[in-house]
Design a protein around this nucleic acid. Structure first.
Lengths: 148, 148
DNA sequence: TGCAAATAGATCGCGCACAAAGTAATTTGT
DNA sequence: ACAAATTACTTTGTGCGCGATCTATTTGCA
């Protein structure tokens, strides 16, 4: 009974689970991010830049699985909020390089509390969470592959 | 090392995994649903109504974790497409009852292929998928609880 | 060298997603 | 009985998310 004879039913349930769980995370983050005046996608961009400053839009998009039509306006808003700068790469004027401002870097310290709250709400041991994460990532990559 | 001392880092990674995996599902569904002229959220609504016809908006929203301000325009579009009807409940004129039309019911047959494709793309045995689903659902409900 | 193809972003249009505020019907409290 | 509170849904405004299309820059290759 462990044969992958017909996954269609289970996969149908799973896609709904992911859909609603992802929204649940967004809804949990929203009030926490409110005092920083960040939306959840904006926060994910900041996390990515805290991890690696100076990325261009394409690079950022490939890690977040978002394309430039989503990121361009979002990045403009982060720029307007004074958290990042957007400058063309002199070596290749097609690229827009994204750099944290002082204010953007400073936000990282204050955002530690947010992570803390999420960790508590998840209320699972690190090992279970990590297993869950890697299973989901593997599934995501397989779906991404199928979609070409 | 299995103590939940500090989940914040892992939980941070996990929320991103869910975020991107959910999008990956959407992107996989999109081309499959195109020939039915349905978006992914519209499809989820149809699945819910195939499961239980005659729900009202609130009931539908609680199963999909969406509120009426998202559903109202979506349901109007499904109505305009001739897939559902929207009628006030005579017993309580506040409620809008959602019923499948003949065309809406007929769509269910043709949608079997979609589930099939998703099941194949997931490419995991049913048991693993089911475990994954139930873990995510439990997490989602805990997050939902935390958000009050 | 010259010019087509490829690449990086930006813009536009449409459909979610959700907070806030509005409308109408029903229930509750006195 | 009837005003206040509650409930179900709609409307409005803002910000994603993405396909399609556009502009500007760089690369390839004949």
């Amino acid at each position: 009974m462990t044969q992958p004879a017909d996954n269609s039913g289970v996969a149908g349930m799973l896609c709904f689970s992911l859909y609603s769980a992802s929204h649940a995370f967004t809804q949990l983050y929203r009030p926490l991010l409110e005092k920083f005046e960040l939306t959840y996608p904006q926060y994910l961009v900041m996390v990515s830049l805290w991890n690696k400053d100076g990325q261009n839009v394409k690079e950022l998009g490939s890690t977040l699985f978002l394309d430039s039509s989503t990121l361009s306006p979002l990045l403009k808003r982060l720029n307007a909020a004074g958290l990042i700068t957007r400058t063309r790469n002199p070596q290749d004027e097609r690229e827009v390089l994204l750099h944290l401002t002082e204010k953007g870097r400073a936000l990282q310290e204050r955002a530690g509390d947010v992570m803390q709250c999420i960790g508590e709400a998840a209320a699972l041991d690190a090992e279970t969470l990590e297993t869950l994460r890697s299973t989901i990532d593997a599934l995501r990559d397989r779906l991404h592959q199928s979609a070409n």
